[in-house]
Amino acid sequence: MTIFLPLLYLAAGWIAGQAPFDIKNVISKLLTKLIIPMVIIFNIATSFRSMGWIIIATALAMLTLLVVSKIFSRDPVMNLCFSYLNIGWLGLPVASALFGNQAAVIIIAAYVGSSIVGNSVGASMLSGKTLNPLKILKTPPVLALMIGILLIPFSDQVKHIGSELYQIAKFLMSFLGMAVLGIWLSKVNVGLDDFRQELKPFFQRVSVMALLITLLLLLAHATHQALITDNPATLYLLCLLPPAANIIVLETHYLGSGRSARPITCGTCISIVAIAVYAAVVIGGRMIVT
């Protein structure tokens, strides 16, 4: 039953999008500046040793996707839509529902890696400026990463004191993140041609990500990284994720436009269908095994 919860959260956002007032900016700020950093801090403080590999691997995978995307287009908005994936808001609730808490650790680590790249490289691409290390250090995911590292010596205390707060924050991250996506879906009109245009980059991204994840699993087996080798299904779920909703926030800020809304919306719809099929296969495989 829990697998359907992300879709219910999405539907709640779509309904909220019909209201005369707009709450997505407030929710986005709450997620970006408070809730998501809380989730990152807790997981880094309590599970950093197992997460470090995934943070680095995700950042490198995103940079690889960025390089590949430039083969097909020089448009920075489209480059970001190809390489910056919705790992936190869509990936986390789906992975948690399908695979449990261990999957959440993987997805959160992947979110940290992608956020660092997305909010630094992505911002510099759209602004036309060179990378500014000081600005990168001030982004919420990086600040949360540093706070979490400082709290590693107190991991037992963090786990004892913050477990309940973490569960609340993780739920709000899933619910509010999917709700924001639902609000965006309610605002953008798309046609069949738009979906056809997004199918090609979707399958291209799936192919590149599947190859990168396979290489990561081989490397993890060779170096005995149990968190990675024990959760291949969670890692391959990353292949199916759509462009990050945060792209339109960056685009609006730096370019004053919203061209990414259409590929984000179409990509999200395509991904939801693909993830539903993937979930059915995973659940069916479990039933056969048991």
Rank of each mutant, 00 (worst) to 15 (best):
residue 237 L to S: 01
residue 206 V to H: 14
residue 171 F to H: 10
residue 118 G to S: 07
residue 181 L to V: 14
residue 190 V to T: 15
residue 102 Q to V: 00
residue 246 N to S: 08
residue 160 H to V: 03
residue 43 N to M: 09
residue 169 A to V: 00
residue 218 L to T: 04
residue 184 W to N: 14
residue 2 T to M: 04
residue 172 L to Q: 12
residue 131 L to P: 02
residue 235 L to E: 12
residue 168 I to M: 14
residue 10 L to M: 08
residue 32 T to I: 06
residue 73 S to P: 04
residue 84 Y to F: 13
residue 34 L to H: 02
residue 218 L to E: 09
residue 59 A to P: 10
residue 32 T to Q: 05
residue 142 V to T: 14
residue 56 I to L: 15
residue 63 L to D: 09
residue 166 Y to C: 05
residue 242 P to N: 12
residue 75 D to G: 04
residue 2 T to H: 01
residue 201 P to G: 07
residue 4 F to W: 07
residue 119 N to Q: 14
residue 231 N to Q: 11
residue 84 Y to N: 05
residue 248 I to P: 00
residue 12 A to Y: 00
residue 164 E to W: 09
residue 56 I to M: 11
residue 48 F to I: 05
residue 30 L to Q: 09
residue 151 L to M: 13
residue 76 P to R: 08
residue 97 A to Q: 11
residue 58 T to E: 08
residue 39 V to L: 09
residue 15 I to L: 11
residue 236 Y to P: 00
residue 239 C to A: 06
residue 47 S to F: 10
residue 149 I to Y: 09
residue 23 I to K: 02
residue 109 A to L: 05
residue 240 L to K: 03
residue 227 L to I: 15
residue 15 I to E: 05
residue 278 Y to K: 06
residue 215 L to V: 13
residue 141 P to Y: 14
residue 5 L to W: 07
residue 262 R to G: 02
residue 155 S to Y: 10
residue 148 G to E: 10
residue 75 D to E: 13
residue 263 P to I: 01
residue 196 R to V: 15
residue 97 A to C: 08
residue 1 M to C: 09
residue 61 A to D: 07
residue 137 L to A: 15
residue 7 L to Y: 13
residue 186 S to P: 03
residue 219 L to M: 15
residue 272 I to T: 04
residue 13 G to N: 12
residue 161 I to D: 15
residue 209 M to I: 15
residue 35 I to V: 06
residue 226 A to R: 13
residue 97 A to M: 08
residue 188 V to E: 15
residue 201 P to M: 06
residue 3 I to A: 08
residue 271 S to N: 07
residue 245 A to N: 10
residue 216 L to Q: 14
residue 145 L to D: 03
residue 203 F to G: 10
residue 268 T to W: 01
residue 55 I to N: 00
residue 109 A to Y: 06
residue 289 V to S: 02
residue 79 N to G: 06
residue 103 A to M: 04
residue 289 V to R: 03
residue 112 V to S: 03
residue 116 I to L: 14
residue 206 V to I: 15
residue 161 I to V: 14
residue 238 L to K: 03
residue 109 A to Q: 04
residue 184 W to E: 15
residue 121 V to S: 12
residue 32 T to E: 11
residue 69 S to G: 03
residue 254 Y to M: 06
residue 91 G to A: 06
residue 163 S to C: 02
residue 178 M to W: 14
residue 233 A to C: 03
